[in-house]
Amino acid sequence: MSHVIEIEKAKVEQFSARIMEDYGNTLRGAMLYIGDQLGLFKALADGEWVTLEELAQKTGYNPRYLREWLGSMATGNYVSYDPPSKRYRLPPEFVPVLADEDSPYFAGGIIQLSVPFVSMAPRVIEAFRNGGGCPEEAFPLETWEGMERMTMPWYKHYLVQHWIPSLDGVKAKLETGGSVLDFGCGSGLAAITIAQAFPEARVFGCDFHGPSIERARANAEAAGVGDRVRFEVSDSDALVGQKFDFVTTFVVIHDATDPQQMMADLRQSTADDGTYLMVELNLSEELHENMNLFGRVMYPQSTLYCMTCSLSHGGAGIGAFMGENRARRMAEAAGFKRFRKVPSDKPALPALFELRP
């Protein structure tokens, strides 16, 4: 006996409209990318009303393209539009998010990452069919610039001001010449920030990704700490035998090919009276606990980057959704005796796990 499912036409139409909306949001992501890359949001950051012609004169860009871009931004409620005067304005409340790179709310990094991540979809399809994944070297180089800009607000506004003081005894050690290892340092912003804040500390950063280490060295020179921060291309097994007072990873473990072995290596690199700060995304292993904005963002990103990079090397493929319970289990298996999730009143920020031998 066949089972007949009754379908409500109104719900079909409602869902059809939602697909159209999502399609528009996806394409609008490309428009945001264009606005960020061309400095259009910064050109509008003064909050003044401008005509198309005035914006074209100010930026030097093609007016026809600007008109269509402004239409995308106005219909998407990113800029305001005044029909009688045909003028446009970026609301002042949007400036910290779209135009001010020193703001804790700056989103230029995630805007920049949307295009390289979406561009990997055809290769990820092949991994669905055949296994494996997309290795880091398959991604456009600007991926790493986007990641640098995405995490930049953490280091500018939270690392020294809030995160390090929340850890037991770490600030005092850094003030008196303690040693620091930032593993998976990327372009080096965390290590550089620590070196700037703690002139006595000895800071070392490493990453397996050669182009990122080149960026890190250039960033350190530009920040005036090139002589106090050392960066090297290496993996965690190359650290065996070295001990550090303070070890950090910033959203690194869940991407790893062998995260458990990496944590074991980092345990060996943590001094007996030292601290390992594992910063991970504030997400859960359980799907039902991720039914929120952050989950809607991170499941796609995990599919297009985090998980597929690990699986491309035959790895564990944890993906972005490590969660506190799994982090605790992995810490214990790696030989850490103490594990604490640092309390936070900002759920949008990453989770801080304080691990000690």
Rank of each mutant, 00 (worst) to 15 (best):
L239Q: 09
L239W: 07
L239P: 04
L239F: 08
G241A: 07
Q242E: 13
Q242V: 08
Q242W: 08
Q242C: 10
K243V: 06
K243S: 08
K243W: 01
K243I: 03
K243D: 01
D245H: 07
F246Y: 08
F246I: 00
V247D: 08
V247S: 04
T248E: 11
T248M: 13
T248Q: 14
T249L: 11
F250R: 11
V251F: 07
V251R: 09
V252H: 00
V252E: 03
I253L: 11
I253M: 12
I253G: 08
I253Q: 15
H254F: 11
H254R: 07
H254Q: 14
D255P: 08
D255G: 10
D255W: 08
D255R: 06
D255C: 10
A256K: 13
A256C: 14
A256P: 05
T257I: 10
T257L: 04
T257E: 09
D258A: 08
D258K: 12
D258N: 15
P259R: 04
Q260D: 14
Q261V: 01
Q261N: 07
Q261P: 01
M263Y: 06
M263C: 03
A264R: 10
A264N: 12
D265N: 14
L266E: 05
R267D: 03
Q268P: 02
Q268C: 07
S269E: 02
S269G: 03
T270M: 00
A271W: 00
D273T: 06
G274D: 01
G274S: 05
T275P: 07
Y276I: 01
Y276M: 13
L277R: 00
L277M: 10
L277D: 04
M278D: 08
M278E: 06
M278C: 13
V279Y: 05
V279R: 05
V279K: 06
E280Y: 03
E280P: 10
E280W: 07
E280F: 02
L281W: 09
N282C: 02
N282D: 15
N282W: 12
L283Q: 02
L283Y: 00
S284A: 10
S284Q: 05
S284T: 14
S284W: 09
S284P: 09
E285Y: 02
E285I: 07
E286N: 13
E286S: 14
E286V: 13
E286M: 09
L287W: 10
L287V: 14
H288K: 11
H288S: 12
H288I: 11
H288D: 10
E289F: 13
N290Q: 09
N290S: 03
M291F: 11
M291N: 10
M291Y: 09
M291K: 08
N292M: 09
L293S: 15
L293K: 15
L293Y: 13
F294A: 15
F294M: 15
F294T: 14
F294K: 14
G295C: 08
G295P: 06
R296V: 11
M298A: 12
Y299L: 03
Y299R: 03
Y299W: 13
Y299I: 05
Y299H: 09
Q301L: 12
Q301A: 14
S302E: 00
S302F: 01
S302L: 00
S302P: 02
T303F: 15
T303L: 15
L304V: 00
L304P: 03
L304A: 00
Y305Q: 12
Y305T: 02
Y305K: 01
C306T: 11
C306V: 12
C306Y: 10
C306N: 11
C306W: 01
